[in-house]
């Protein structure tokens, strides 16, 4: 099915990184945080993989793991480790406009800051959500639910 030998290409393009292959068309590449922008640019310009499917954030307890799923003829998952103490990544917004929403979501739910992001409004959480609480972190202490402005009496 896959005509081009992507595995070799990827190994050439990402010499210092580990390239794993699962199933015929899924490739997993672990890269450094600072190399992210270059990696995405390389994939887009050299291999024609320009579709950012999504960014998956995971809390691995000692660090965050971000997986940038890029897809084209094959799927390349760029995995970036992010420090818990300094949760920052460079933004992809200037390379791929579609990344904006995913980065906003990451910011909302994990508190990972995409540096240079144009518009970091709340995306999914309510407006009155307490700052500094990131629901998808494993150690998150979540606020108690409240009813805003007591409603009418429940009917019998």
């Amino acid at each position: 099915m896959v005509a081009r030998d992507y595995e070799t290409d990827l190994k050439v393009l990402f010499p210092g990184s580990e390239v794993k292959r699962s199933e015929p068309r899924y490739f997993w590449v672990g890269i450094e945080r600072d190399a992210l922008l270059d990696a995405v640019r390389t994939l887009r310009d050299k291999l024609g993989i320009h579709h950012l499917t999504t960014i998956v954030g995971e809390d691995m307890r000692d660090h965050f793991l971000l997986s940038y799923i890029m897809s084209g003829e094959i799927v390349v998952v760029l995995q970036v480790k992010v420090d818990r103490d300094k949760p920052e990544v460079p933004t992809l917004a200037n390379l791929i406009a579609g990344a904006v929403v995913y980065e906003r979501e990451l910011h909302d739910l994990f508190g990972i800051v995409p540096v240079g992001h144009p518009d970091l409004r709340r995306q999914v959480l309510p407006e009155d959500w307490p700052a500094g609480v990131y629901p998808l972190r494993k150690d998150a202490v979540l606020p108690k639910p409240t009813v805003e402005g007591e409603g009418g009496e429940p009917n019998a």
């Binding site: 979501e105 739910l109 999914v124 629901p135 998808l136 979540l142 108690k144 639910p145």
Partner: peptide, 8 residues
């Protein structure tokens, strides 16, 4: 996405 919390 939201958050599950079992509480009073």
């Amino acid at each position: 996405t939201t958050v599950a919390l079992n509480d009073r």
